[in-house]
Amino acid sequence: MSPAEFRRYALFYLGYYGALGAYTPYIGRWVSANGHGGYAVGAMLALWYGGRILAPPTWARQVARSPAPGHWLVAGCAVALAVFAGFTRFDHGLMLFVVMGVFALFFNAVMPQFEAMTLNALGTRNHDYGKIRMWGSVGFLLVAASYGWLLDRLGNDAFIWLTLPWLALTAAAAWLHRADPPSPAIDPGVAREHLWRRPGTRRLLCTALLMQLGFGPFYVFYTLQLQAHGHDGFAVGLLWAIGVICEILMFWQAPRLVQRFGAHKLMAACLIATALRWTLVAFFADSFAWMALAQTGHALSFAAFHAGCMRRMAELFPARRDMASAQGMLYGFSGGIGGVLGAGMAAFAWQHGGGAAAFVAGAGCALIALCVHVATQRFARSVPA
Rank of each mutant, 00 (worst) to 15 (best):
A10F: 02
Y16V: 01
A19T: 04
G28K: 03
R29L: 15
R29H: 10
R29M: 12
S32T: 12
V41M: 08
A43P: 00
P57D: 09
W59Y: 14
R61F: 07
V63A: 10
P67G: 10
V79P: 02
V79E: 06
V83I: 13
G93C: 12
V99S: 03
M100D: 02
F103Y: 13
N108E: 11
A109P: 02
M117F: 09
R125G: 09
R133C: 04
R133N: 06
W135C: 02
S137V: 05
V138H: 05
G139Y: 00
L141I: 06
V143T: 09
A144E: 09
G148C: 12
L150T: 06
L150E: 06
L151D: 08
R153L: 12
G155W: 09
F159E: 03
A171D: 04
A173E: 01
P181W: 10
I186P: 01
D187G: 11
A191T: 15
A191W: 07
A191S: 14
L195F: 10
L195V: 12
G200Y: 02
L204Y: 01
L205C: 04
C206A: 15
M211E: 09
Q212E: 10
G216K: 00
V220K: 05
T223A: 15
Q227R: 15
W252R: 13
V258P: 00
R260E: 09
F261I: 07
K265H: 10
M267E: 00
L271F: 07
F283E: 11
A285C: 12
T296R: 05
T296E: 06
L300E: 00
L300N: 00
S301M: 08
A303Y: 04
A303F: 05
C309M: 14
M310G: 02
R311T: 13
E315P: 00
F317V: 06
A319G: 10
D322R: 06
G328P: 04
S334N: 04
G338K: 01
G342E: 02
A343I: 04
A346M: 06
F348M: 13
Q351E: 14
G355A: 11
A357F: 08
F359I: 08
A361R: 01
A366S: 15
A375D: 11
A375T: 13
T376D: 13
V383E: 05
